[in-house]
Computed example of a mutant assay.
Amino acid sequence: MSAKRIVVVSSGLSTPSSTRQLADRLTSDAVDVLRERGVEAEVRTVELRDLAHDITNHLLTGFAPPKLQEVLDELATADGLIAVTPIFSTSYAGLFKSFIDVIDPQSLTDLPVLIGATGGTPRHSLAIDYAIRPLFTYLHAIPVTTGVFAATGDWGGGGDGVRSLPERIFRGAREFAELVERTYRSERVNDPFSLDRPMGHLLGGLAGE
């Protein structure tokens, strides 16, 4: 079995960033779970702040600069996406949304997604389910059931009163790894004989529509 390809996107703006820290923790647990199942993973981690100018240029011109295009190409052949954003004004960061806007929507079809978010207060955790999850669902991705939110106080180990941050990270990573293990997106995309339309359309003479 070929290695699974995982793209990790962190849209934190500061250095160091709790958003990147959460992304790294989610990635580490997901890779560990896959390895325990006998599956190797290739990970590409992307800091969106390093691509901010390229993303803006793409929005303005419709063309992606080379570094951004490389990330978009990797995402199109990925077996899984770990996406982590800070929460500003009760929703995802503008940079995060701008990145989603320059992705070819078809690139995310059937893509397992593990959602992470960071913020100052646990109240912002609701943004995962009312803002971020619907965004990926609309794009036909497959967000895992457990989204992981890390408030400032969570890093001290107290958790949310129900489940500690490490427990939530592991639960989300395990669900994500289970989906990644079963997906064959990268093999399908790289197959020169794969079809970009359902066979029924081709047999029915609708290939040109």
Rank of each mutant, 00 (worst) to 15 (best):
K67M: 09
D110R: 15
A83N: 07
G147A: 04
H140V: 14
I128P: 04
T121G: 07
I87E: 09
F170Q: 12
G119K: 11
D160F: 10
I142R: 00
F136H: 10
S125W: 04
F96P: 14
A150L: 09
T145M: 10
D50G: 09
L26G: 14
R168S: 06
E40T: 14
F63Y: 11
F149Q: 00
D24S: 11
R35T: 15
T27Q: 01
S89D: 11
I115F: 11
D154P: 09
Y92H: 03
R123N: 14
T61W: 08
I87M: 15
N57H: 03
G147R: 02
I169L: 02
V39S: 00
D54F: 01
T137F: 05
F88D: 08
V84H: 12
D73N: 11
T152G: 01
E42I: 12
F88R: 04
P86D: 00
P143V: 04
A117L: 03
G62H: 13
D79Y: 15
V102F: 14
G156Y: 05
A52Q: 13
Y92E: 04
T121K: 09
R133N: 06
W155C: 07
P66N: 13
R25H: 14
P65S: 14
R163D: 03
S125E: 09
D160Y: 08
T85Q: 06
I103V: 14
